[in-house]
Amino acid sequence: MPRAQTNNSTLLDARALARALQRMALEIIELAHGTEVLVLVGIQRRGVELAARIAAIIEEKEGVRIPRGAIDITLYRDDLELVGPKPVIGATHLPGDLSGKHVVIVDDVLYTGRTVRAALDELADFGRPRRISLAVLVDRGGRELPIQADVVGETVKVRPGGRVDVRIEELDGRDEVVVVEGP
């Protein structure tokens, strides 16, 4: 097993992750010039939980409710033949028509950019937002498409073959981000 050769290192512990989300929330409010037309859309699975956390922070600061949605981009991927069908596809639900809104897509890790490309395609089938931005907890580099994030929690360079594992309380029992270097 190649496991013995891998080298795990913690990129963010629970407190650092919380601070990163606080800062991302503030940046999102600035980016959207307030909260009036702001909609947060998380990408299944961990993006959905992260969007919920960021929404809670914004709601506390601003005293307003932030409409939230979730999308599963599996059916919009361009590599079904390559990766095979995903075992379980998550739910997609959006808070009504997105036309005229400022949608902020929230995901855990930005890597090749293909997930975001698929998310943009999927969102286009739900209306015509005035603007779409991207917020990610970790940008690990390695883009294969001309896509960049507007709001980033942490930037790290991870070589192909390595992994960035984002764990969050609601799904994994604890908050942390771990970089697993490949063999």
């Binding site: 890790v109 890597y111 090749t112 293909r114 960035v164 697993v180």
Partner: peptide, 8 residues
Amino acid sequence: AAKGGGSE
């Protein structure tokens, strides 16, 4: 081969 790591 295609997964390449991360959550993507």
